[in-house]
Amino acid sequence: MSEGYSILVDTSKCTACRGCQIACKQWNGLPGTQTKNEGTYENPVDLSADTWKILRYSEGTVPSGAPFWYFFSEQCRHCLSPGCMAESEKGEIVQDEKTGAVLFTLKTKSLNYDATREGCPYDIPRQNPKTKELFKCTMCFDRITNNMIPACVKSCPTGAMVFGERPEILDAAKARVQELSKKYPNAKAINPDEVRVIYIVTDDPKKYWKFAAGK
């Protein structure tokens, strides 16, 4: 347990059932916000203080001319060296040693939001405009310290999301990429040595989301 936890997000198995997006709302009691259809299934169209887990959809055509529709179920990467913490000098943002979870506390309201957000390679932190506090995925800290798995992971039907101890997840990522490479030569795990939430993709990460592999 010394290396903490990790989450594997294998986009090749994601069916966009949106269980994860809703499960996060349900567990954390986050409100549903007002949205409109912007020409996509994606909604909300961005993370916010009220949306910590979001299904990003992207579509186009592959070289053969066939369509593609990629699903990228985004959340905070819980980096090993969190860029957001550069601004945090008084414990506004903490990193739990045991689990590795990176947590925004109430004190984040006193941080420079723009700088904090700028410091995150994945553009994750979001601010509540009224209270000025910052919000993001908590790795379901309360659940994982109570013998439960994160709500999003539990919700996932196809095993696209898996939660476990970091060494096992890293091994699983490696094995899956190897398997996928037979059919998808560009398959890769995104920055596995830097993040705890490791995404596996079968194509250029930018095709999924502009910041999928970092800014």
Partner: peptide, 28 residues
């Protein structure tokens, strides 16, 4: 349900790029 209507808020019609071009319709 706020969580569900947030995720899928409005009636939509899916069409091909070719049809959109034919009718001069832009995404969204």
């Amino acid at each position: 349900q706020p969580w569900l209507i947030e995720a899928q808020p409005q009636m939509f019609v899916e069409m091909s790029e070719e049809l959109a071009k034919l009718r001069g319709i832009k995404n969204g």
